[in-house]
Nucleic acid binder design. Sequence first.
DNA 1: ACGCGAATTGGAAACGTTTCCAATCATGTT
DNA 2: AACATGATTGGAAACGTTTCCAATTCGCGT
Lengths: 351, 351
Amino acid sequence: MRKGSSHPTLLEVARLAGVGVGTASRAVNGGTNVSASTMRKVKSAIQQLGYMPNHAARVLKGGRAKTVGLLVPSISDYFFASCAEAAGRIAKAHDSLLIVAVTMNLSGAEISSLDVLMRHRPDGLLIVPSDPDNKELARCVRNSAVPVVTFDRPLFGSGCSSVITDNFEAARNATLHLIEHGYKRILCFSSEPDLYTIRERLRGYCQAMEEAGLPSLIDTSLDDTTLVSRLLAGHLKGRRPPDAVFTLKNSSTSAVVQALHQLRVSIPSRLALLGFDDFELAATLHPSISVVQQPIEDLGRKAAELLFEQLESHHGIKGFRKMKREPVVLANRLVLRRSCGCKEELARKDL
Amino acid sequence: MRKGSSHPTLLEVARLAGVGVGTASRAVNGGTNVSASTMRKVKSAIQQLGYMPNHAARVLKGGRAKTVGLLVPSISDYFFASCAEAAGRIAKAHDSLLIVAVTMNLSGAEISSLDVLMRHRPDGLLIVPSDPDNKELARCVRNSAVPVVTFDRPLFGSGCSSVITDNFEAARNATLHLIEHGYKRILCFSSEPDLYTIRERLRGYCQAMEEAGLPSLIDTSLDDTTLVSRLLAGHLKGRRPPDAVFTLKNSSTSAVVQALHQLRVSIPSRLALLGFDDFELAATLHPSISVVQQPIEDLGRKAAELLFEQLESHHGIKGFRKMKREPVVLANRLVLRRSCGCKEELARKDL
DNA sequence: ACGCGAATTGGAAACGTTTCCAATCATGTT
DNA sequence: AACATGATTGGAAACGTTTCCAATTCGCGT
């Protein structure tokens, strides 16, 4: 801690160790072509001075920044937070730091946040695109000069690989499960129908209903509990009320559960319920809620692993573009609890 | 995007604009002492080349890194995730990026994560210390040469300011509330009794019980549901069973709720429940759970604001140490729902 | 036309690394 | 003993900024 608590430089280390700056540098990194005694001297000097390599200088010189950027809609959301944590673990294992920028699902904020991220010249990028068809973002990604992996949602025309779950198939199977239970009027409920994942789930639901020759009943309102409460009351008072609800996202499931509580509608006898995305208390609620469970952490983990794979193979070669381009698709799981009418709490179906 | 999609430099911009590199630099930053026409030429060149300042070079030269580091135990935890998001918003408002490192509450990982963070030479640091008495960490913070703000927990001997909630007082008031309800055998349940916040809450509970002349009943087991279930069964079968439970953290509350469900113990008639920390479905569960609600986002926001305040006032002066040193204490709130025996769902008490 | 501040401009130096090249050293071979 | 070989070593150059200083230009009053 010399010189007014400012950071000591490699030059100072070298001087103290009585060696050249080049030698000191080699000693710091790996130690190729450094004699044991020199190594010792340098190490001791580093200890003494509390030397810490200046990241900025390293990056400037053209080395790995040991940094990967993550662009997500939100970080307080459990889903993305878990992905981020998993990705962060992988990054750490590669001695890198994950830096996070939040977009709030606003396509506008996306580009500007990406800019802030790029200022730090990360080695690679992990992105959850708000809109898979965002041409502007795709363009940014294409000439970003670093490998990019998308997860949870693809980014068409970006040419980067992605890790997603099969939302369509999972929703289809979940709906099919409700149909097997004998429900015929299955209401599909969700907010934010414009989101890619929601659209896919909606497709899956429609496909299943069509296969079974049943009419689709769709309501894409907000997740506001009192609103949902009023809507459901309306649906239930109709001449042909629904006998089951399939919610397409976490917050919708919560909202419906709360609404049904308020309305004193019993689950599943009066109305069955199955939701997309698991949540902490799904098993604790009364009755427990059946859900499609996504391999949340695997999403973040896989995406990060894929990115580092590209990073390794990149290594100076500009050819990192020609990696596996088809998206990696992870399997979802149908966790059957009570709210759909199942008796056995433990039945699970891999999808 | 000239030259093989690599990043164009300020020099190239200057050349294209037909000006000197120094002038280009001034044009990029604020534009002091740059004529309108020059400004225009440079701006146009920047557009044309898609120039983006090289952060590393800036930092190296000694400028603001426009980066603040955040060191938290976890980021998938709702509490810290929300703090992080709030802090990130403040950072963004100051045109800075928040970089996050995760410690898992391991004091060991803390120092090393801090190192990784410091490599990026952030302008300041936001820390949630695992252990307020960690001398080693305090030392690191003291000679880190940047302003540091702690939140959720203090860091004694570090000389940095902190933002916390009054865990002691909130727990005391919550316990007092249970006592007012007439409960006499109040079991205090929580895992991780070594954590500062939990200790404070424990103190608050003990203080309240002592004030009322009641005996403290404390169980600091793990949050494993089946274990909790067995423990509670034991307590309830005892000769003087508890009539209320006060849980000191989120996961403990969940575990107890689940356990009581399994045991078919009715809340609050057989056993009342009040938990520290709100959670999403607390109002939805049956019965709704009364909780102490912390101003989560305010914690992160305030901490970040305080940090930037110090950053502004710092500005080259080494005197940033002499800021307000007493911790900022935010008020908690008692949200009374049904599980404690209250009839009115809406009653709230500011603490 | 001249001079004189003020405004603007160009360019060199410096920030702390890494990397390359040439130089030195130790070692073993003929 | 001379020499080749390879392992170490020191130091210069370069990375892209910012900042300072000297130089140039401009506006304008005399």
